[in-house]
Structure formats: C-alpha cells, structure tokens
Simulated assay, not measured.
Amino acid sequence: MRYLWTKRPRRAFLLLVSIQNKNRRICVPITVWVIEDTIDALQDIACVGEWILRLLGRDRENKRADGYKRTAGPWRQYIEGMPVSSALQAVNGVIRELRLQGRFRMIEVENETIQIVVDLF
C-alpha cells in the first residue's frame, strides 16, 4: 500500500482532442513529446537569431557614415524587452509540467449541438 502513495504517475505522451457534433465525431491525436522537441529546436533557432540581430544592431550603430549614432529600431527594443527564446522556454516549461501530471482531462465543453473534450494520456 505504501508503494501506491509514493509512485509517480506515468508521463503523458498523447494529447487527444475530440470534437463531437450531432452526426460526426472527430478525434485528433497529438504526440506531446514531438511538440516538446519541436519547441526546444525552435528555442535554439530563436536564440541564435536574437544573437545575430544584436550583433547586426551593434555594427549598424557604430558604422554610420556621417558619424552620428542611429537610434535603436523597434525590432531591437522588442528583442531587449521580451526575447522570443524566453517565451518559447516558458511554453516548453508548461508542456513539461503538464506531461509530469500524467493522465487527466484538461478541457470538457458541452453545448446543445457540439461537445469538445481535450484529454492528456
């Protein structure tokens, strides 16, 4: 009995989105680990892109022909304010935590004509 209390739930591997209409039912399985790996790869690409944009911004500010420094463009202010890689890291953290919770029903919405259920398996 003690083993049951200390055992961690199995990690979730599948997100099942089920949409049921009066006459039709659609189930869309989505593998969660693929989404997690994809976001990891996108985070690495975004980090390299931000690094390159910062370097380009520094070079453009320092190498102006008339000697005056250019003000930072809106893209540079955006990168300094909230980097894309940080947002992707937060999304990936949420997905990892959801996977650790194991199997549960995330969303269940029902109307007269349609029913939407999102399960994590």
Rank of each mutant, 00 (worst) to 15 (best):
L42F: 13
F104T: 12
R24A: 01
R58A: 09
L53R: 11
G102D: 01
E110N: 09
N21E: 13
G102I: 12
R103H: 00
R96W: 02
A41L: 07
D59N: 05
N92K: 12
I35G: 10
G93P: 03
R64G: 04
G57S: 06
E97T: 08
L14N: 00
E36M: 11
G57W: 04
R105H: 08
R25A: 10
W51H: 15
P29F: 05
N23K: 11
R54C: 12
I52A: 06
Y68I: 13
C47G: 05
L15K: 00
I95D: 09
P74F: 00
S18K: 15
K69F: 07
P83A: 12
A41M: 01
K63V: 10
K69E: 01
V34P: 03
E108I: 03
I35A: 14
A72D: 01
M106G: 01
T31G: 06
T71S: 08
R99A: 02
N62W: 04
V94D: 05
S18H: 08
V94C: 08
I45W: 03
T38V: 09
A12N: 00
I39Y: 11
N92G: 12
S85A: 10
P83F: 03
V28S: 03
R105K: 10
E110Q: 14
L16P: 04
R64V: 10
V91E: 11
E61N: 07
K69H: 04
V17K: 06
E80R: 09
R25N: 07
A90N: 11
L56K: 13
A65L: 08
A72E: 02
Q101F: 02
Q43Y: 00
L100V: 11
R99L: 01
C47T: 13
L55W: 08
F13H: 04
I35T: 14
L55Y: 03
A46F: 07
D37V: 11
Q89P: 01
M106F: 12
V48A: 02
V84I: 15
F104A: 01
C27E: 14
I79M: 03
W75F: 09
W33C: 12
V32Q: 07
R64M: 14
E112F: 00
V94A: 10
R60E: 06
T71A: 08
Y78Q: 06
I19R: 07
